[in-house]
Design a binder for these strands. Structure first.
Ligand SMILES: [Mn+2]
Ligand SMILES: [Mn+2]
Ligand SMILES: [Zn+2]
Ligand SMILES: [Zn+2]
Lengths: 136, 136
DNA sequence: AGCACACACGCAACAATGTTGCATTAAAAA
DNA sequence: TTTTTAATGCAACATTGTTGCGTGTGTGCT
């Protein structure tokens, strides 16, 4: 998938800025924070990036990667997410040492055990520890 | 458990401010954000509250309730947490409607399925949906 | 009770993160 | 190419969190 293909598929205007942002996501196999991305675009406008990320999330190009850290991160959606539904039913791993966050597509959150009266709409499973590099 | 008992047990100085904060926690059966607490203490000092919450967390009186929202929340530790170890192995429920977060003590995160090379130290399980009140 | 010490508090100053409004510019449609 | 629509860039502001430092308070000891 190229940046332009992703924008086409999700019916978004093709702009230089959006292509740059998607290019950065495609070159990393981990979740990225606002800051991660901003520091890789020369002359990036903070505000535009906030709006770009929000749009990408709404349209199903990226999903929030909840990792228990104070920073909000996003990762590329693997499959067929769109404006109507996200399907990111996988765990996330957060390294307490280097701060990196990875999607663990193989591990799914457990079957929903609903507490009485509560309606569960989505589930997040987060592993916190040390990544392969930091564990040694 | 009273505020004073909690402070004694965890070897912390008994101050008016700390007692007020613990009193608020004891009167709510849900996780509270910095803002939730601040708005219930007249003439609360923001900075002191930040430091109070950090101290309580370090000493094992409260634990962070990761709920996937942008706000950091804390809840009273149920059992025998202390400065050396927290034992909050339970799920959290976050209501997307009213924003409240509850500890679900009965539900534990699943047995750790370690991705190769990664070392897992803790696990968080978050249910997102609608609470009993908001579901109707 | 009085004293000394350690620690908690309160305030200022600053940093990081996120939002809104609006004029300008660029992309898509006509 | 012209028109229409949406994205961008900038200012201004709001929220959240951190650090340094002088002052006040709780606690243990005499
Ligand atoms: Mn993911
Ligand atoms: Mn909890
Ligand atoms: Zn790491
Ligand atoms: Zn609710």
């Amino acid at each position: 998938m190229s940046p332009i293909e992703l924008l086409n598929t999700h019916h978004l205007r093709k702009t230089q800025f959006r292509e740059k942002v998607l290019d950065i996501f495609l070159r990393h196999d981990r979740a990225l924070s606002h800051r991660d991305i901003e520091s890789q675009i020369s002359e990036a406008d903070r505000i535009t990036l906030y709006r770009t990320l929000r749009t990408f999330e709404e349209k199903g190009l990226i999903h929030k990667a909840i990792d228990g850290s104070d920073k909000l991160k996003y990762a590329l959606c693997a499959g067929h997410c769109d404006v109507h539904a996200h399907h990111d039913h996988h765990a996330h791993f957060h390294c307490a040492s280097c701060g990196q966050t990875f999607c663990i597509d193989e591990v799914q959150p457990p079957g929903i055990q609903t507490p009485p009266g509560f309606v569960v709409e989505s589930t997040h499973l987060i592993f916190n520890g040390r990544c392969a590099l930091c564990a040694n």
